[in-house]
Simulated assay, not measured.
Amino acid sequence: MRLLDEEFTQHNFKGVLGLRDHLRLAGHAVNEKRVRRLVRRMGHEPIYPKPRLSVPGQGITSYPYLLRERPATAPNEVWSTNITYVPMVKGFLYLAAVLDWYPRYVLSWQLSNTLDMGFCLQALADALRVAPAPHIFNSDQGSQFTSPAYEQALLQAGCRISRDGRGRVTGNAFIERRWRTVKWEHIYLNPADDGRHLHQQLHAYFGYYNQRRPHQSLGGQTPAHVYRMSPTFKHNHIWRWSKWG
């Protein structure tokens, strides 16, 4: 799974067959069925236009993608969220984060050992405690984000809901790039021993990422510097951890 995650993170346009061939070239005798099962277990989905092979399940409210030609121009206009698989020396965890699009600022994050909805809701609640609700909140169509509880939390906060369309390139490209950054700059270089160690590492890394890592897209400034330009900035950032706190 570690090899799959590294290849997927670096070249996430690859589908199951491409990942299978990558493992075979590395000397691993795997078939398409096994690779597909592992990819699903990790919660990965390649980022490229795909045919519409399925439709949302019954009871799921349909929301349009609102960001096709609407770039964010200030903090707290657009937030997005996503989940990624994080390998450790032994085992793995899932990481969910909420990102402000304009300053690339990581507002909150949570770890979980399952793909349940609870840690995603907690990350959302943490973000809403440190900043006003955004005008638009974007996500993919994962079951965690299309659940009635998650949807109601967004609507009660006053957000307009935006969702990536099935069979289209993801609108969450910013947060996908953040996953690549944190993995290649930190996680793969310093694999965590366990969940507690991983939390300590991510706490330190996201502090560095927000406060000290400059971005070319921000004119060489850090996410925190740009975010502080917003009159709504608060100095009570919350880094909560529900699983091993």
Rank of each mutant, 00 (worst) to 15 (best):
Y209G: 08
E176T: 07
S217T: 15
Y205T: 11
S147A: 14
R168M: 10
F206K: 05
K183A: 07
Q200W: 05
N172Q: 15
R196A: 15
P214C: 05
G165H: 07
Q201E: 12
L198I: 12
N190K: 13
W179V: 07
E151I: 07
Q141T: 01
D194L: 10
R178D: 12
H197V: 13
Y188S: 03
H199W: 14
Q216E: 15
F206I: 05
L202S: 07
N210V: 04
N172P: 11
D164N: 13
T181M: 02
Q144F: 02
A157V: 01
L155C: 06
F145C: 00
Q201P: 04
H225Y: 11
P223E: 02
A157Y: 02
Q156G: 04
W179M: 10
V182T: 14
D164Q: 09
H203A: 12
Q221T: 00
L154H: 02
F145S: 00
R213P: 05
Q152H: 11
A204F: 01
L154V: 00
N190V: 05
G220M: 06
A224T: 09
T181L: 04
S143Y: 08
Y188H: 10
Q141W: 08
Y208Q: 12
R213T: 06
P223L: 03
S147D: 03
S217G: 14
G220A: 08
Q211S: 13
P214K: 07
K183E: 09
P214N: 06
E185V: 09
Q211D: 15
T181W: 06
R163D: 04
Y150Q: 00
I175E: 07
G171V: 09
A149K: 10
L198H: 11
L154Y: 00
G167Q: 09
Q201T: 07
N172R: 13
W184H: 14
I187V: 15
Q200T: 10
A204H: 08
P223Y: 00
G142E: 01
I187W: 03
T222Y: 01
P223D: 03
Y150V: 02
Y209H: 13
E176Y: 03
C159P: 04
Y188L: 05
G207P: 04
A153W: 03
T146C: 00
T170P: 13
E176M: 07
R160Q: 15
V169M: 10
G165N: 11
E185Q: 14
R168D: 08
A192T: 11
Q201H: 08
I161M: 03
R178G: 12
R177H: 08
V182A: 13
T170M: 14
S217P: 11
D194A: 09
Y150G: 01
E185D: 15
Y150S: 00
R177D: 06
Y150D: 00
L198Q: 14
W184A: 06
E185L: 08
A224V: 07
G219A: 07
I161W: 03
Q201F: 03
H225A: 13
S143G: 06
G165V: 08
Q152W: 03
A224Q: 13
Q216C: 12
S162W: 04
V169T: 14
